[in-house]
Design a protein around this nucleic acid. Structure first.
Lengths: 127, 127
DNA sequence: CCGGATCCCCAAGGATACTG
DNA sequence: CAGTATCCTTGGGGATCCGG
């Protein structure tokens, strides 16, 4: 792709940090990884086991993206059996503060959402 | 799954409210719509103009999903020229509280994320 | 004015095999 | 052990046309 045209991603991209954040943690796995790393340093396969329904592929991608955005730090020990450790950065840790509030809200209001869905389905379609 | 280890991770199962929430607001437009409705009641085309880079299609879908989950309320006035009004529910308004904290965090730390990206790109690829 | 129905495209996500 | 490369599937999102 030699020449990427300036495709208008969003008109609100420049001053829209939340978009960046949502794009990162809105995916399937990022939040799980961040939560898993709350306990401390973990190696790749430890993470893989801890989240065990994630594939190596997705774990790798997710870690790379999180590292790229500065949420986690990757440390490679150049040894014969490779050893790589992942841990939260200060940025990652600080992020979990507001995130947990959102999680808490979700937890407290999930029942309402479910109720609303049933209600909607019930009133919308007779069948 | 009655008993797992010190799994503070939200299991990826039935009781995973955050997944529901992220799936809803992690999309392209939901947040924009919710923010737009903060000011009060708006009609369909008013919303369309306010977010003007959204298509009618996506606005319609987004509104329906938000209504389905109980974040907004839709009021139809059966008139010859159809009139439909949208407004936040209490649930939707309460959601914006933790959400704004996340937005605020994003706002305050966006520069760090951007820096991390440049840093990562700079150290990762020499070319 | 307010959408639904339809078609299309692309990128995110998964599975598997391979590598240093 | 810690990934990468490759292929494939899925569905979100856009454009457009149609209907009430």
């Amino acid at each position: 792709m030699p020449d990427t045209q300036t495709k208008e991603i969003f008109a609100f991209e420049q001053p829209c940090p939340i978009r960046d954040v949502l794009d990162r943690i809105g995916d399937q796995w990022s939040l799980l990884v961040l939560e898993a790393l709350q306990g401390g340093v973990l190696r790749f396969n430890e993470l893989n086991r801890k989240i065990d329904d994630i594939s190596k592929q997705m774990l790798s991608r997710t870690l790379k993206r999180l590292e790229e955005d500065g949420f986690i730090r990757r440390t490679l020990f150049a040894q014969v059996p490779p050893r790589v450790e992942y841990e939260l950065t200060n940025l990652g840790r600080s992020f979990l503060v507001p995130m947990h509030l959102l999680v808490q809200w979700a937890d407290e209001n999930h029942i309402r959402i479910c109720t609303a869905r049933l209600d909607y389905a019930g009133s919308g379609t007779g069948s």
